[in-house]
């Protein structure tokens, strides 16, 4: 099944004169790992908002995991988002007053689907994911997330996005706060885990040095016909 299908997607912010998004066609295959590159202002955030059901898009223009996002009523979009998407932000992904483990388990609180997919022991799954991402110190994992380094926080965020095997991981410049060595290591780990869970990855970044890790790179300026 194709993870993401965009078909003549047009979106204009309520008070804007130009179309922010004008995408003719885009496909993201199952377990495909794509890097989406574009300067700021090219509509990256708006595209992510469209994919995650934050903004209203026309019917049949955005299909995520076979679901027409534009056709979902508002209250269903929150469930859709947590059921099918794992999100990783640039920085500050974690609730600082929660432990790393509890942060990882957050989606399972809100999504029955992901709780079911995570197996009989969510805690064990969380520990395994964190372990695979190189975080094993139990003291660190049970302490407040604010005690973690930025690199560690991003790996915890990746574990949270992956837990319960959502179909698609959306990563919004997750490496921009990391140093050079950590960037490649993080991307490799993320890709490995996406393979393990069979998730597709849409990795937004303007860092061309990371291109080599992905199946293909899409320039948002090209994709987004009327983009700036």
């Amino acid at each position: 099944m194709t993870a993401i299908i965009l078909k003549s997607l047009q979106y204009r912010w309520p008070d804007a004169s130009n179309l922010t998004l004008d995408i003719d066609s885009f496909h993201l295959g199952a377990n495909e790992k794509v890097m989406l590159r574009g300067p700021s202002g090219s509509g990256k955030s708006t595209l992510l908002a469209a994919l995650s059901g934050i903004i209203d898009v026309p019917k049949a223009s955005v299909l995520v995991a076979g679901i027409d996002v534009g056709d979902l009523p508002g209250s269903d979009r929150d469930r859709f988002r947590v059921d099918h998407l794992g999100l990783i932000f640039q920085v500050f992904n974690l609730l600082p007053w929660m432990s790393a483990i509890d942060n990882v388990l957050l989606p399972c609180r809100f999504s029955k689907r992901r709780l079911e997919k995570v197996g009989a022991n969510p805690l064990e799954t969380a520990m395994r994911l964190l372990g695979e991402l190189g975080l094993t110190d139990p003291e660190l994992l049970n302490g407040p997330a604010s005690a973690l380094s930025i690199g560690q926080q991003q790996r915890v965020a990746a574990a949270r996005a992956l837990i319960g095997s959502p179909e698609i991981i959306l990563a919004d410049e997750p490496t921009s706060a990391l140093d050079e060595d950590a960037k490649d290591a993080f991307v490799e780990l993320l890709l490995k885990e996406c393979d393990a869970s069979g998730a597709s990855l849409m990795f937004v970044s303007h860092d061309s040095t990371l291109e080599k890790h992905f199946d293909r790179t899409v320039e948002l300026n090209v994709l987004n016909g009327r983009g700036v």
Binding site: D78, R79, R81, D83, F92, R109
Partner: peptide, 10 residues
């Protein structure tokens, strides 16, 4: 963050 992991405005 809570919204991104499925918390509704409610």
């Amino acid at each position: 963050i809570l919204r991104s992991v499925g918390a509704t405005p409610r």
